[in-house]
Computed example of a mutant assay.
Amino acid sequence: MVVTRRAARAARSSITRLPVELLDIIVRYLSLEQAAAMCQISRLFNALATPILYQSVTFNTDEQLLAFLNTMNRPSGASLVPHIQHFALPRDDTLYMPELVEDITVSLLPLSNLRFLDLLTTDEVYFITFLQTAQFPRLSRFRIAVHSENSEALHDFLQRHHRTLQHLTITHAEQVEFPSPIHLPQLHSLYTTDLLLSRLNIEDAPLVELRIYNIDEGRVGLHAISIDPSTARRVRNVTLLCRYISVDAFGDVAKGFPLIDTLKVEAMNLPRLMTADEIIRIGTHLAKFTELSTLILDRSAAVRPSNDDNATILGWYGACKTLSSVTFGGKTWLREKDKWSVLCEAV
């Protein structure tokens, strides 16, 4: 069917007679590509679609980041500020020169409605001026890398946002410490090192998910985790990442979080074979968990020493009767009643 220009204008005229509130609801079901196209129709549709386009600002390339910064530097950029709630920097292949970091800081500081901020990059970027001055009343999710150069500024930033933060990721590849513990009473999920964990006061937090990693090449387990027992009881999921995984790491988690229902173990170095003795010792530690239902050992954490998977799974189930799913040796096993079967090859 051929649509004439007159028919197209009539259709647009009919749509615009709908209440603005209804049009706003309809626009929120559009994809980003459709919203971008809608901005070209009229000023009304541009005003309705723009909040959708700028609500979540993430970048896959340097060109996209630079285009956004140029847009924000224009006089019209101020009208976009209320819409931006999610901001994430490009991960790889970005050269964060001082001028670029300054432009990012200038663009971020006015975003009073920001809820999710991801400044985690593969490059060493400190954002010291930004961390010293930024204030976001609604910030609930934050990701960044801490270095000795920005540790004090990051400490102050977290102190200013401690009442709203619910999801926090702090990575670092060197020994750093905060001047004083940071109280985070609203935290639901945390990803950080075992060392930095001791500088975060999460005793009152409704913490559910904890991801811990170890930067100490000389250790195969965790440093002592000091966490309030009542907080530990609320944690349901623990992911453990270490350079080298040892059986002792299972004991470290069991000692700190015996009530978790999911434990995932990952290694940052090459895969290694797990001996029969280590498999038996893991079972000893699994016996200390009282509610563990899912155990995941990714391919990098451990490779089975033989094809006798049944003996391994049955042995661990004998130690921990609450287990219902185990990923080990590249396979995922599920239990139905007291029978175990391979569901699929693990990805």
Rank of each mutant, 00 (worst) to 15 (best):
E203F: 12
V326F: 00
A10K: 11
D228R: 11
G221K: 00
L297M: 12
N269P: 06
H285C: 11
V57D: 02
S324P: 02
Q34I: 01
E149D: 09
P51C: 03
L109G: 04
L65N: 03
L314W: 10
Q159E: 05
R143A: 14
R219C: 09
T16H: 11
L44D: 07
Q166I: 05
N73P: 03
I282D: 04
T133W: 08
Q186T: 12
T164C: 11
S325H: 04
I280H: 14
P19Y: 10
V146G: 10
A153E: 05
H167T: 09
R143E: 15
F45A: 09
V238Y: 04
A205N: 08
P258W: 09
T133K: 12
R115P: 00
L297R: 00
A346V: 03
F127L: 00
D309W: 15
L44R: 12
N269A: 15
L286A: 13
L120K: 06
R219T: 05
I15N: 08
I25Y: 09
T193E: 08
F257T: 04
T122W: 00
I182D: 09
A276L: 14
R74P: 02
K339Y: 01
I182S: 08
T171P: 04
A145W: 00
D92E: 14
I182F: 10
K255I: 10
S112D: 11
G318N: 13
I52K: 03
A301N: 06
D338F: 02
Y244L: 13
A346G: 04
